[in-house]
Amino acid sequence: MVALVLSAGAAAAPARAQSAAPDGERLAFDRGKGNCLTCHVIKGGDLPGTIGPELKDLKTKYPDRSELTAIIFDETKRNPQTMMPPFGRNRILTEQEISAIVDFLQTL
């Protein structure tokens, strides 16, 4: 249901992406919140990890933002062996924060 709620805002994503991308970038680079840099190389990020794949060309790889949203929300549903924390399921990030991170990742 959460994926449906998050994907419902996809129609407004282009207009929202420009305003939310800075918030998403801040969250993705924040070592205490999103912390994407712990595992991923992201252009513009300092001291990235290499456990996960480099985050680039994600809009091409995931043109439907709901798939990327679902990965961040709970990657264990798709890949039970993942090391990626279920950010949404474990309430590490809110739905709005996940959406902002997706907005940012789609600009890479």
Score class of each variant (00 low, 15 high):
residue 69 T to V: 07
residue 49 G to A: 07
residue 27 L to D: 15
residue 106 Q to A: 10
residue 82 T to H: 05
residue 99 S to C: 02
residue 71 I to T: 13
residue 75 E to F: 12
residue 101 I to L: 11
residue 62 Y to R: 00
residue 94 T to W: 13
residue 93 L to V: 07
residue 51 I to N: 04
residue 98 I to V: 15
residue 108 L to R: 06
residue 69 T to K: 04
residue 46 D to Y: 08
residue 83 M to G: 14
residue 81 Q to H: 11
residue 29 F to P: 00
residue 15 A to K: 05
residue 63 P to S: 01
residue 43 K to M: 15
residue 32 G to S: 14
residue 106 Q to G: 08
residue 45 G to W: 00
residue 92 I to C: 00
residue 8 A to T: 08
residue 79 N to E: 02
residue 18 Q to S: 13
residue 102 V to W: 09
residue 24 G to S: 09
residue 60 T to K: 14
residue 56 K to C: 10
residue 86 P to T: 04
residue 75 E to S: 07
residue 40 H to S: 01
residue 84 M to E: 08
residue 28 A to D: 10
residue 65 R to Q: 13
residue 72 I to L: 06
residue 59 K to T: 02
residue 89 R to W: 05
residue 12 A to P: 05
residue 54 E to K: 15
residue 66 S to Y: 09
residue 35 N to Q: 04
residue 57 D to P: 03
residue 100 A to C: 02
residue 79 N to L: 00
residue 91 R to Y: 14
residue 8 A to S: 09
residue 58 L to F: 07
residue 69 T to Q: 08
residue 36 C to G: 01
residue 67 E to C: 00
residue 58 L to W: 07
residue 42 I to S: 05
residue 96 Q to D: 15
residue 10 A to G: 02
residue 44 G to Y: 08
residue 58 L to I: 01
residue 72 I to H: 06
residue 74 D to G: 07
residue 97 E to Y: 04
residue 55 L to F: 07
residue 53 P to L: 13
residue 43 K to A: 13
residue 75 E to Q: 11
residue 25 E to A: 06
residue 94 T to I: 03
residue 30 D to L: 05
residue 95 E to P: 15
residue 81 Q to A: 12
residue 58 L to S: 06
residue 16 R to I: 12
residue 13 A to D: 01
residue 19 S to A: 04
residue 65 R to D: 15
residue 82 T to V: 08
residue 43 K to G: 14
residue 21 A to I: 04
residue 73 F to G: 04
residue 95 E to R: 04
residue 55 L to W: 03
residue 6 L to Q: 07
residue 105 L to G: 08
residue 93 L to F: 01
residue 51 I to P: 00
residue 56 K to N: 14
residue 59 K to Y: 05
residue 45 G to V: 06
residue 4 L to D: 11
residue 89 R to Y: 00
residue 57 D to W: 03
residue 57 D to A: 13
residue 10 A to Q: 09
residue 40 H to I: 03
residue 52 G to W: 00
residue 10 A to D: 13
residue 44 G to W: 02
residue 10 A to K: 06
residue 62 Y to A: 03
residue 38 T to K: 01
residue 66 S to P: 10
residue 77 K to Q: 15
residue 54 E to N: 12
residue 103 D to W: 01
residue 100 A to E: 14
residue 107 T to Q: 14
residue 20 A to P: 12
residue 59 K to I: 03
residue 47 L to T: 13
residue 53 P to S: 15
residue 96 Q to I: 14
residue 73 F to K: 02
residue 26 R to L: 08
residue 14 P to I: 03
residue 28 A to T: 14
residue 72 I to G: 12
residue 97 E to C: 04
residue 30 D to N: 04
residue 65 R to N: 11
residue 12 A to C: 12
residue 90 N to E: 10
residue 6 L to F: 02
residue 82 T to W: 07
residue 24 G to Y: 07
